[in-house]
Design a protein around this nucleic acid. Structure first.
Length: 203
DNA sequence: GTATGGATCTTCT
DNA sequence: GAAGATCCATACA
């Protein structure tokens, strides 16, 4: 059973924390989300900061919509749209711990090492076969879906976001403590991340 | 282990 | 025409 629209219709930073420990599913492939970043139209690192354009229109869709776009001309990156339709906000899925469909992931990635299959936002979309055509599709009804986590919620650390040039100081990256599958333990050269208390756990 | 540069394309100015 | 929420191969220490 997928997470419902209500899960995403909350403050984006809260959703970003709760998504760590949930499961992203596409076809036979699935992975435990171990790293996310939050983006909100009130800060300049977010695509929606410039307002509503053809590119950013997906960010203003209903909560629980997938925002998939191409980065650096090569990689597809997947986000979960959050908050209301008058707010441009989304959670970037940065890294997964592979759970099922390992053979398909290895074939798509041309990579045997499990820790290298989904340890980055461009890698995980390639591993799961997530293409731009999934942009604006629903994460609630599929084909790309998010399921609630089964185990206890993982402990989190918050740190600065990666690969951006604006609003770099916001600690809006959330990683599962101790996971071997995150893209990077934390940004090099920055202070150690702070532990955060999980706001609450959606049902 | 760390550093650097190339690939490649959509979007906006 | 320039910038960008990246990844990988290669070079060097």
């Amino acid at each position: 059973m997928s997470l419902g629209p209500g899960f995403y219709d909350r403050p984006v930073v809260e959703v970003a924390q709760d998504l760590v420990g949930c499961v992203l599913v596409h076809g036979v492939c699935s992975g435990l989300i171990v790293e996310t970043e939050a983006y909100h139209h009130t800060e300049p690192a977010c695509h929606a900061y410039v307002g509503l354009t053809a590119r950013t229109s997906t960010l203003y869709r209903e909560p629980g919509t997938a925002y998939v776009y191409r980065s650096y001309g090569i990689h597809a990156l997947v986000n979960a749209v959050c908050e209301g339709e008058d707010v441009g906000a989304a959670v970037l899925v940065r890294a997964l711990e592979p759970l099922t469909g390992l053979d398909a992931m290895r074939e798509r990635r041309g990579q045997e090492d499990v820790e290298a299959l989904c340890s980055g936002p461009g890698k995980l979309t390639q591993a799961l076969g997530i293409e731009l055509e999934l942009n604006a599709s629903s994460l609630v009804t599929g084909p790309l879906r998010v399921l609630p986590g089964t185990g206890p919620p993982p402990a989190l650390v918050a740190s600065e976001r990666i690969g951006i040039t604006k609003a770099v100081d916001l600690p809006w990256r959330f990683s599962a403590v101790g996971s071997r599958f995150v893209s990077r333990p934390w940004p090099p050269g920055l202070a150690a991340p702070r532990r955060v208390r999980r706001v609450r756990r959606a049902a």
